[in-house]
């Protein structure tokens, strides 16, 4: 069967050209200054200095992190009960609910986010409903609330599906064992179900935090032109300002932050697992 080996070679050339080389370009651009031609490439930290010495950029970074963390927390708090309810539903209902959660994710994100623009307007449907009971109008569009809502809306299905998968993989007899050993429902949930579903929560967090921290069209559409997150800064540097070196440096900073947060999340996961082990 060795003759099939060569079938992988064209793709190896392809990934070198379209994945590895572009990633190297980001590194090269991030550590050099504008105006350098290839022959006189000079290593510099100037782009990073520019970012970390400017209060405006640091503010944008802080806001992006806060929005992404808020989005992730809300997704866990709403997604967990949803996944739990679905996992415990009966056969047909379960399939139905999973399908209902999946369908929106297949419809273009831009299209769905655009719809929220109309809904959240000052004279939109929500404010009209609030008006009927004598409240409002509440300013919603072009606020952090709108941005977080847009992100939760777009990313929560990933959280629900991840937690759902880990809950259905769980061995149901463990719960019977827990109740046989005298645990009540709450104890069984806290000591058995919850710890066993943590891996699902962790991968859900990854799938929500990553797009949330780097998103740029949700803040643009729902936060308005003045609402700037780190993704918008990158978009600006590449498509408007034209400073690719600075833009690459910011992307690198963002990638590092994401890696660190993933690492911390995994550490917390392991730490909790150890704690659970000791309790036994």
């Amino acid at each position: 069967m060795k003759q099939f080996k060569t079938m992988a070679y064209p793709y190896i050339v392809w990934i070198c050209l379209l994945i590895v080389l572009p990633m190297l370009l980001i590194l090269v651009y991030a550590f050099t200054k504008t105006g350098n031609d290839v022959a006189t490439i000079k290593f510099s930290f100037e782009n990073f200095g520019k970012f970390f010495s400017d209060a405006i950029f640091l503010d944008v970074l802080r806001r992006s992190l806060i929005i992404a963390i808020a989005t992730t927390v809300i997704c866990v708090l709403l997604g967990y009960p949803a996944a739990y309810i679905i996992a415990n539903a009966e056969g047909r209902k379960k399939v139905m609910l999973i399908l209902l959660i999946t369908i929106p994710t297949w419809i273009n994100m831009l299209v769905r986010t655009y719809a929220w623009m109309g809904i959240l307007q000052d004279n939109g449907i929500i404010n009209s409903l609030l008006g009927l009971i004598g409240l409002g109008p509440v300013k919603m569009i072009h606020t952090s609330f709108a941005v977080i809502l847009g992100m939760v809306y777009n990313f929560i299905p990933f959280m629900i599906l991840q937690i759902y998968t880990s809950l259905t993989k769980m061995d149901k007899s463990l719960l019977e064992a827990a109740s046989d050993l005298g645990a009540n429902k709450v104890q069984a949930f806290l000591r058995v179900t919850l710890p066993l579903s943590i891996p699902g929560v962790i991968s859900g967090i990854t799938l929500v935090f990553l797009p949330a921290v780097s998103s740029f069209f949700i803040p643009k559409l729902l936060g308005g032109g003045q609402y700037v997150l780190i993704g918008n800064v990158i978009e600006n540097q590449f498509l408007t300002a034209g400073d690719w070196n600075f833009g690459s440096a910011i992307s690198l900073i963002m990638a590092v932050i994401i890696m660190i947060s993933m690492y911390i999340t995994k550490k917390i996961d392991k730490g909790e697992a150890m704690e659970g082990g000791e309790r036994k």
Partner: peptide, 11 residues
């Protein structure tokens, strides 16, 4: 993040 892949391809 998709935006990183995007800018790398752009460059």
């Amino acid at each position: 993040p998709e935006i990183v892949t995007a800018i790398s391809l752009l460059m």
